[in-house]
Nucleic acid binder design. Structure first.
Lengths: 102, 102
DNA sequence: TCATCAGATGAACAGTTATTCATATGTTCG
DNA sequence: CGAACATATGAATAACTGTTCATCTGATGA
C-alpha cells in the first residue's frame, strides 16, 4: 500500500479535527457556495442571488468556510469578494463525487 | 484546468447527495471506525472495544456507513465482520488530512 | 455629515443527529 | 429445544446546527 498516512494511523485528536472539516462539507448550501466559487470570485450578494438564498444565510455560511480556511475574502469598496482558498477544496469535492457517481 | 467535474458544474441534486456523503465523514466516531477498519477487518465488538464505546453505538453507526456503501459486512458465525467497502474512503480521508495538516 | 448600500452578527426557532437503554433477532452448541 | 452470545433496532433524550429576522458595522459619495 503506497499509503501516505495510514501506515501510521491518524491520532484521535486529528480525527476530531478531520470530522470538523468534513462537517463543513456536509451541508448543501456550503457545497453550493464552494462550487459557485470554483468558477469565479463572487461577492456575497452575487452568491446569494446565484443560490436564491438570503444574504444573511450566505454570510453566516461564509464565516464557517472562512474559519476553516476554505474560502478567502477580499474587500473592494462596499463589497467583499470571496474565492476558494486552496486546491484541496476542489479535490475533496471530486473525491466525494467519485464515490457517489460510482 | 485539467478538471474532471468542474468544467461542468455538478447539478444541484448531486450536491445534495454529496452533502449527505460528507455528513457521514463529519462524525468522529464514524471516522474512528473507518480508520480502524483501514487496518483490518473487525467485528462489531472488536470495534467497540478498540474505541471504548458501546456495542449499540457502534452498531448504529455501522448501519449508517453500510447504507452509504462505505463499509461492507460479512457474517461468520455469530459475528459480523466489517471492512471498508472501497478505496475512495481512504482517499477522501487523506484529502481531508492534507487540508488540516497544511 | 448623512443617506444608502453591502456585509456581518446575535438571538430565537425548528429540524436533525449521536448516544443510551431496553429489547428483539439471529446463530451456535449442549 | 433452550441457554448463551453477537448484533440490530426502536424510542427517548440531549446537544447541535441552519435559517430567519432584526440590527449593527463599515464604506461610499453627494
Amino acid at each position: 500500500m503506497e499509503n501516505k498516512y495510514f501506515s501510521e494511523l491518524p491520532g484521535e485528536e486529528v480525527l476530531y479535527d478531520l470530522a470538523d472539516l468534513f462537517k463543513v462539507f456536509g451541508d448543501s448550501t456550503r457545497l453550493r457556495i464552494m462550487t459557485a466559487l470554483s468558477q469565479s470570485e463572487l461577492s456575497v450578494m452575487q452568491i446569494a442571488e446565484a443560490l436564491g438564498m438570503e444574504q444573511s444565510t450566505i454570510s453566516h455560511q461564509l464565516r464557517v468556510l472562512r474559519q476553516n480556511k476554505l474560502v478567502r475574502a477580499r474587500r473592494d469598496g462596499k463589497q467583499m469578494y470571496y474565492s476558494l482558498d486552496d486546491d484541496h477544496v476542489k479535490k475533496i469535492i471530486e473525491m466525494g463525487l467519485d464515490h457517489i457517481l460510482e
